[in-house]
Design a protein around this nucleic acid. Sequence first.
DNA 1: GCCAACGTTGGC
DNA 2: GCCAACGTTGGC
Length: 137
Amino acid sequence: MAHWLLKSEPSSWSWQQQVEAGAKGTFWNGVRNHSAKLHLMAMKVGEEAFFYHSNEGKEIVGIVTIIKPYYPDPSDESGKFGMVDVRAVKPLKHPVTLEAIKAEPRLKDMVLVNNSRLSVQPVSEAEWTLICKLGGV
DNA sequence: GCCAACGTTGGC
DNA sequence: GCCAACGTTGGC
C-alpha cells in the first residue's frame, strides 16, 4: 500500500482543524500543480498520509487516511484539478521536524528534502516506517 | 522579510 | 515550441 505526505500551512488549514473535522473528514483542495495532482489521482481509499505543517512548525504532526478517491475540485474554474477527502487517524506522539528528517541519512532522498515545494508527495515504505518510529507511533 | 527554486504564462 | 518574465512557495 502506498503512502503519502500532504503539506499544509497551519494558517490556512492546520492539523488541529483536521482533528476537529472528526470522522467525517474533509476535502483536501487547493492543489494547482500537475505533479501533485498525479499523486492525488494515485491515492486509494484506506491509504495513509503524513500531515506536514509548512512554514510554521515545519514538522510532520499526524497521520490521515484517504476516505474518498480523487474527484473534481468545484472551486477550480479551469476544471483541471481535483481533490481527495481525508480524515485524521492519529497524531504523532513526537512530531518529526524537517530538521530531524534532514539529520537522518536514511531520509535524505525524501521528496520533502529534495523538492520541498511539492505539496503532495509519495513516501516510500522505508521512509514511512522510520518516521512512524521516530514519531513514536 | 528575503530570496532561491520551481511552475506557469505569454510573446515571438 | 522556445524561453524570458513573472508569481508563488517555503526554508532560512
